Simulated scan of single mutants.
Amino acid sequence: MEWKKCYLDVILVPLGLIISLLYHIWLWQNVKAQPLSTIIGTNANGRRLWVSSIMKDNDKKNILAVQTFRNTIMGSTLMATTSILLCSGLAAVISSTYSVKKPLNDAVYGGHGEFMVALKYVTLLLFFLFSFICYSISIRFINQVNFLINCPQDHLGILSIEYICELLEKAFILNTVANRLFYSALTLLLWIFGPVLVFLSSVCLVTVLYNLDFVICHDDKGKKIKDVHHENSENGNGHDDFVMSV
C-alpha cells in the first residue's frame, strides 16, 4: 500500500479521533473540578438529591422510582440493540465478498486498498461493540439500583443512600461513555466516503457537544454560577458539596 494513496487516512482520521479524545479529557477535568458548569455534573448532583428524596419517602414514591428506572432501561436497551445490530451488519460485510467493500469510485479521497477498506469496517465494528458493552453494564447497574432503592431504609442505614448514588452514577457514566462511542462511530461511518469527512465531522461533533455539555447560569446578582463556584473553591467553601464520587 503506497503512502500517496493513504496518507490522508493516516493523518486526518487519527487527528479527528485525537481532537475528540482531548475534548473529553478536558470535559472530565471540568466535571471533577467545576461540576456545576457542566450538564454532566449538574445532572449528577440532581440525581443524588432525587435518590435521597425517594428513599426518605419511599412509601409514597416507590412507583415513581420504578417507572423512572424503567424508562431509563428502555432507552439504554434501545441503544444497545441498535449497536449490536450494527455490529452484526458490519461483521456480515467484513466476512462477505460483496462489492460493497469496494470503493465507491476513484473520486473518493484516501486509500482504496483491501487492507484500508477492511480497517475501516473493523474500526467501526470495535466502536459499536464497545458501545454495546457499556450500555449492557449500565443496564446492569440500573437494575441493581432498582431493587435497592425500594428496600426499607431502617434495615440499610444512612450509608445505603451513598452506595445507591454511587451505583447510579456508575450506570450513567457508562451510559454517557456508550453514547460518546456511538457518536464517534457515526463520524467514522463517513470514513467509507473518505478521511476528509471524518475529520470535518469530528470537529463539528466536538463543537456540538461543547454547546450541549456546558451550561452557564447566572445567580440573582448576575454573576455566572461557574465563576461563583470557582471563587468558593478557592476559598474552601462549598466545594465538598458538589464533588462527585465516582
Rank of each mutant, 00 (worst) to 15 (best):
E234S: 13
R70K: 14
L212D: 08
K170I: 11
L125N: 00
C151P: 02
K221E: 07
F193I: 09
S201D: 10
R48G: 06
S160C: 02
L188G: 01
I192L: 07
I158Y: 05
Y163P: 00
F242Y: 14
N105E: 02
P103N: 14
D240W: 08
L190Q: 02
G46R: 08
L22P: 13
V196Q: 12
K224N: 04
C134W: 08
Y98Q: 13
F127P: 00
F128A: 10
I137A: 12
G157H: 04
V51Y: 00
S138Q: 15
E231A: 03
V31E: 03
S96R: 03
K56R: 10
T97K: 11
W50M: 00
Y23K: 07
K102S: 10
I63S: 12
L124A: 01
V208N: 03
C134A: 12
A171R: 13
L85A: 12
M79S: 12
I54L: 15
W26R: 15
L22W: 01
Y163T: 05
D9W: 00
D154C: 14
V10E: 04
P103Y: 03
W3H: 08
I192R: 14
Y7S: 08
G110P: 01
D154K: 09
M74K: 12
T42V: 07
D241T: 12
L190Y: 11
F132N: 05
V246Q: 13
N211E: 05
N71E: 09
L125C: 03
Q29G: 05
I63P: 00
L209E: 11
I173K: 05
F132I: 00
L156W: 07
V215N: 09
D213A: 00
G113I: 03
F128D: 03
R140M: 13
G89K: 05
L49D: 07
N211A: 13
P35E: 03
I137G: 01
I142G: 00
F147T: 14
V10L: 04
R140F: 12
S202T: 07
L90P: 03
M116H: 15
N175R: 04
L189Q: 05
Q153N: 13
C134Q: 08
I25W: 13
L22K: 09
A65G: 14
L186H: 04
C151N: 06
I161P: 01
I40F: 08
K56L: 07
Y109P: 08
D59Y: 11
I11D: 11
K120C: 10
K224I: 04
V243N: 00
H155F: 09
K61F: 12
Y163D: 10
